[in-house]
Design a protein around this nucleic acid. Structure first.
Lengths: 95, 95
DNA sequence: ATATGCAATCGTTAATCGACGATAGAAAAT
DNA sequence: ATTTTCTATCGTCGATTAACGATTGCATAT
């Protein structure tokens, strides 16, 4: 378990929160959380954004460790990174 | 109680998370949470930032509803806005 | 081998953010 | 009344972000 306090934890929480700091990314995360979507095109269909923009939002969520991409089968799939999400919840909970 | 789902909740969470999306602001929030500081100058002393920059971070936290300023007595004090913080925790918890 | 479909990356533009010093304002102390 | 102390605001600058269309890359299907 990583630290929940100190400068490193602050940076960690800031990075996670920053990734969450856009409505489209919150929406994407919720879709993935409820398994309403697994591939990029489904998310593009749902949001009023270009494919490239959605792809960029997914990259940001991946970079922050909130989302993982999987190649289960023929196509790239996305899913919640539960480790990252758990950590975010833990860090927020103790503020 | 406000909604925890839907577009409005997404925007709300994004706004709160964005405010939290900077290490200095996380640090400030933790200081206030632990009552290690109550006035701006104490925070300035603690952080390697100019007074104007700290003041701006405080403004962002206030705008997001995570911090309140109080004039209890002779001088302006800052404290956690527990309503906002509670809402953040609730919104994050259900992702 | 070629075509198709999906996602990532590139290049660009406008907008926003983060930081600072300087300045203003308000209250308390002298 | 003047000085001091503390915080907010202004103006500026460079860096980062958000968005898009266009292009590339990679599988699968034909």
């Amino acid at each position: 378990m990583q630290a929940l306090e100190g400068a490193e934890a602050d940076e960690n929480l800031a990075k996670l929160a920053k990734a969450l700091g856009h409505p489209a990314r919150v929406h994407i995360l919720r879709m993935l959380s409820r398994k309403e979507a697994r591939v990029c095109s489904q998310i593009v269909d749902e949001l009023p954004l270009a494919q490239s923009t959605v792809s960029e939002h997914l990259r940001i969520l991946k970079d922050a460790g909130l989302v993982r991409s999987t190649q289960d089968g023929p196509r790239v799939g996305y899913c919640i990174n539960f480790d990252g999400l758990r950590r975010l919840k833990a860090l927020v909970a103790i503020i």
